[in-house]
């Protein structure tokens, strides 16, 4: 499965980036607006939520639990420096999807025990989208994390993130990664809608057995 993470580029606003992803067939949007004011995030979240509803897409807001409490997205994504999972769960309740960012197996284990519903695991490689980056994982990093998860019987969907391109998808899926999160590779394409369609097709052609 493919998650699109909004990004603001010279060409597109955050909301436009979400619209392009939805038009390209993506059905899982994370609204991420770093360095924006709460008012800007609130306004964009309302707009993206109604777009996602129209497309029956899952809508996740990055970090802003208080805004999520008002807007009622399907869930939130919490980075390593954001609010702890347990506290967000108290605020948003049992029905919210809560994802967490992991860079190591220990992170995955902690998030799983804290009640996260999926893991955004990365970064796969260096990316300019995110400023404060943890060490890159590469294929080998994911292999080790997935194998430790199996050893410890930790079953939670893992989405790979960070500079992933179409060529990486088969390698990641082969390891047992459940999904990929994309942002700049879509928006930097000449035609982001077509690029999203193409990526979704590639992810689908891989039957994860």
């Amino acid at each position: 499965m493919v998650q699109f993470i909004t990004h603001c580029t010279g060409r597109y606003s955050y909301v436009e980036s979400a619209r392009l992803a939805l038009e390209g067939g993506c059905r899982w949007i994370q609204l991420r607006m770093k360095n924006s004011t709460p008012e800007e995030i609130y306004a964009a979240a309302k707009e993206v939520k109604s777009m996602c509803e129209k497309h029956h897409a899952t809508f996740i807001i990055d970090d802003c639990v208080e805004i999520a409490k008002d807007i009622h997205p399907d869930g939130v994504h919490l980075g390593k420096l954001d609010m702890p999972i347990g506290k967000a769960r108290e605020i948003l309740g049992e029905k919210a999807i809560i994802g967490g960012t992991a860079n190591t197996f220990e992170d995955v284990e902690n998030l799983y025990r804290a009640g996260a519903n999926y893991i955004g695991c990365g970064p796969f490689r260096y990316t300019t989208t995110k400023a404060n980056l943890s060490p890159i994982l590469g294929i080998e990093g994911y292999r080790q994390i997935i194998s430790k998860m199996k050893e410890n019987n930790i079953a939670i969907p893992v989405v790979a993130i960070g500079g992933i391109t179409e060529h990486d998808i088969p390698n990641l899926m082969e390891l047992g990664i459940d999904g990929i999160a994309l942002s700049s590779s879509i928006l930097n394409a000449d035609n982001p809608v077509e690029e999203m369609k193409r990526i979704i097709k590639i992810a689908q052609s891989w039957k994860n057995l």
């Binding site: 499965m1 899982w28 029956h56 029905k95 992810a203």
Partner: peptide, 14 residues
């Protein structure tokens, strides 16, 4: 509601 389901990596809307 509040759920994302993928069958063979394709997200299927409700």
């Amino acid at each position: 509601a509040g759920i994302a389901v993928a069958v063979n990596n394709r997200i299927i809307s409700r």
